[in-house]
Structure formats: C-alpha cells, structure tokens
C-alpha cells in the first residue's frame, strides 16, 4: 500500500488533463511517494489491472476535461466498474481535477459533484477537487500560460500539498483563482475569438457558413 493511482480521464494522452496528471505525479514522486499513472481510455481494455492497482492504493486522483459540463463518458463506465468491485475500497482518499474551456467554475462543477456522490456511495473519503477554467487556452501547456496562471499555479500547488498529506482540500483554493470579468469584456472577447475562428477556416478554404453535413445525411435517411 502507500501507493497513489492517478487516472487521466481524457481520451487524449497529450492534452491538459494529462499534463495535470503528470504534474501530480512529478510532485508526489519528488516527495517519495510511489505513483502509478493510467490513461483511462487505454486502460479500459484491461480494467482488471486498474482495479488491482486501485485496491493497492491509499490515494486516487482523477483528472479529466469537461465535455459538455462533465467528465467524458467513460468516467461513468469506470465508476460503474468500481461500484461492482466495491471490495477493493478500504477508505482510500479521492481527489478530482476538472478543466474546461469556459472560464467559469460553475460550468465544470458537476463533474466533481459526481465524484463526491460516488465516494459517499462506496463509503470512501472524498477529499476535494481543483477546477480550472480557460482550459482551451492551455492545450497541454503549463499552468502559467493561463491568464490567471500565477494564481492557479500557486493554489494548485497548495492542492498538491493536501494530496500529499491526505488532508481535505478546500474549494476556496480554486474559487479564489476565478477572475471577475465585466460582461462587456466577454462581448469583446467573443468577437475576437469568432474572428479568429472564421479566419482560420477561411485560410484552409472552408466556408464556415455552410450547412451541417448532418442535414444531408438526415434527408437521405428519411428517403430510405
């Protein structure tokens, strides 16, 4: 025992959730912890191995992106498998990390609420999470690339210290990183981003005003 299992819940192995998983790993290894890191979408093929490692662990960290306001689908599959194999739990400490494109905490919060409910269900300790907005800007790059990078980096390190100690990490750590931006700035920001999107597509010869290909597929389906 005395092992930490980190699971990257993203289908991508090079993205921001993965980068955050490796940050956790490096920190904990530097403090003398034994750490094993898994990429969920690959590990699901051999789920029994993952379950065995979780049984051997005293700490579990789940790090994933926010896909339509929650962790990617296979996270639910993982939780179902863990529930079916409840005997592997012996009061491990669970921590969550979720990051998403929108800059607001509330957009991504549902993912970590599910982790809390799951931990309650299987009677293990949910010890808090870290939520990061503006994730699309990151795209696998270090945290200091964020507009609120310094604050996020500092508070994420405090979050890591909680993981090391096995203590409960307060929500205020990530809440304090949120930047308050007046509405008109978002109007400007959306215009800048939309111009960038259109320009990029135009450069690649793509008409961004074209109708979705799924319209045509739908029409063909209806004719069959």
């Amino acid at each position: 025992m005395n092992q930490t299992v980190i699971i990257n819940l993203s289908p991508r192995e090079q993205g921001s959730s993965s980068m955050l998983s490796y940050m956790c790993k490096e920190y904990l290894v530097s403090k003398g912890k034994q750490v094993k890191l898994f990429h969920l979408y690959k590990s699901i093929q051999s789920i029994d191995l993952l379950l065995k490692e979780i049984k051997e662990a005293d700490t579990i960290i789940l790090s994933g992106p926010s896909y339509i306001n929650h962790f990617p689908a296979d996270t639910i599959y993982l939780l179902e498998k863990l529930k079916e194999n409840e005997a592997i739990f012996h009061n491990q400490n669970v921590y969550g990390i979720i990051q998403g494109g929108m800059p607001y905490i509330h957009t991504h919060e549902s993912g970590v609420k599910t982790l809390a409910l799951f931990c309650k269900d299987v009677a293990i300790s949910y010890n808090g999470s870290f939520i990061i907005g503006f994730g699309a800007m990151l795209n696998g790059k270090p945290l200091n690339q964020l507009v609120n990078g310094k604050k996020v980096e500092k508070n994420f390190n405090l979050f890591l210290q909680h993981i090391l100690r096995g203590s409960s990490s307060p929500d205020s750590l990530y809440q304090n990183c949120q930047i308050k931006v007046p509405g008109f700035l978002y109007v400007m920001l959306s215009k800048v981003m939309n111009t960038k999107i259109n320009k990029e597509l135009k450069e690649k010869g793509i008409d961004y005003q074209q109708e979705s290909p799924y319209w045509q597929i739908g029409k063909e389906q209806n004719m069959q």
Partner: peptide, 25 residues
C-alpha cells in the same frame, strides 16, 4: 448515475458539439 447521465447517454452527448455552432456568444 451519481447525479449524471449513464455512460451510453454521455457517449452521445460528448460529441454533440458536432451539431453545435463553433462561435461564442
């Protein structure tokens, strides 16, 4: 499932941006 969709449902929703508008509002 713990306050969220089932695995199968979420697989469908995870790719819903395919029929989403790319722009921001």
């Amino acid at each position: 499932m713990w306050g969220t969709y089932s695995f199968q449902t979420k697989r469908v929703l995870d790719k819903v941006a395919l029929i989403g508008d790319r722009h921001y509002y």
